[in-house]
């Protein structure tokens, strides 16, 4: 029954790899993104600690987050954004969330989606002013197609200022989302939206996307580990490259199969696509109190800063 090659010690000596490439950048980025999504979602699933925000009704939190996202986007004023950052920080502490860990994530996302994405806006091409980092110097100004290219290209003080302010806004918006996701289960958010008369079709899409992203991230991570177990050499060989060439498509397909099973098990347990509300809890005193304070603060911000 056992083939003869398995009865001997391995004798074939492995060939040298044809090139020296490990997982390429895209693979590694996909893996890191997947790990990040998965931990965020797991955290979303297990927000069981008891603190200020955890004790409030999900509807109150959803309204709070939506209103304050608008507030954050209203103005660029730095003092104003800093006051809001302070408020969010206090809310994190009052909800007993480890500030170091959550702020590392927020800062990382704000750096990427705020700072890096908007950095080009700091160039003197877009924000004229005093250049503090010089990138290129030409002999003359030039015209290229419809563009006017100045003698010097660099980052200006005014531009950097602008990008810093945008990043701060992004930072605040992301903090708000984390305030919601780290204190409120996903199903609670969906129910709150339903009570707020958001149409079922939208909620259905939201729920299923959430499930699919979860499964897809899991598939990517699993595959990464399995590949690691059979990835002997930094060098990728031509034949195995060919086998793996369609792997993104394959991963989608495989996740889809799994997702199908999850969906079927939901249907088997009575899921019809309609979100049912067993009981509609009335808002409690503390919910009203929180809403009131948040509204007063909101109004004060509008009054003093606009």
């Amino acid at each position: 029954m056992i083939p003869s090659f398995l009865k001997e010690k391995e004798t074939v000596s492995p060939a040298k790899p044809s090139s020296r490439r490990n997982f390429n950048f895209v693979d590694r980025t996909a893996k890191n993104m997947a790990a990040f999504l998965l931990t965020s979602m797991q955290q979303w699933n297990t927000s069981r600690r008891t603190g200020l925000l955890q004790g409030l009704d999900a509807r109150v939190k959803v309204i709070f987050v939506l209103a304050y996202v608008i507030l954050v986007s209203l103005t660029h004023k730095v003092e104003f954004q800093l006051i809001l950052s302070g408020l969010f920080f206090i809310l994190f502490l009052a909800s007993k969330i480890n500030p170091v860990r959550v702020y590392l994530k927020i800062a990382g996302l704000a750096f990427f989606f705020g700072f890096l994405v908007f950095l080009p806006a700091a160039l003197n091409l877009f924000s004229p002013g005093e250049i503090i980092f010089l990138f290129a110097q030409f002999e003359h100004e030039r015209k290229w197609l419809v563009y006017h290219i100045p003698k010097e290209i660099g980052i200006t003080r005014e531009g950097l200022n602008l990008v810093a302010r945008i990043s701060l806004k992004v930072f605040n918006s992301i903090s708000l989302t984390f305030l919601l996701t780290s204190t409120t289960g996903f199903e609670q958010v969906v129910k709150a939206l339903k009570m707020m008369k958001v149409p079922d079709i939208f909620l259905l899409t939201l729920t299923l996307s959430y499930q699919y992203i979860f499964i897809f991230s899991q598939t990517i991570l699993e595959t990464y580990q399995a590949l690691k177990m059979r990835w002997w050499e930094r060098g990728a060989r031509a034949e195995t490259n060919a086998i793996l060439s369609g792997r993104m498509g394959y991963l989608f397909r495989k996740s889809w199969e799994k997702y199908d099973q999850v969906y079927h098990s939901m249907v088997a347990r009575g899921y019809t696509g309609e979100i049912s509300l067993y009981h509609q809890d009335a808002l409690k005193m503390k919910d009203y109190l929180f809403l009131f304070i948040a509204a007063v603060f909101f109004a004060a911000c509008l009054f003093f800063f606009l």
Binding site: V12, P14, A15, K16, P17, R230, W231, W232, E233, R237, E239, T240, I243, G246, Y250
Partner: peptide, 16 residues
Amino acid sequence: PTVLDELIFGPLQLGY
């Protein structure tokens, strides 16, 4: 993508 690919992946990766 297929069962056969799965089986030959390891040896190919080793350069056999």
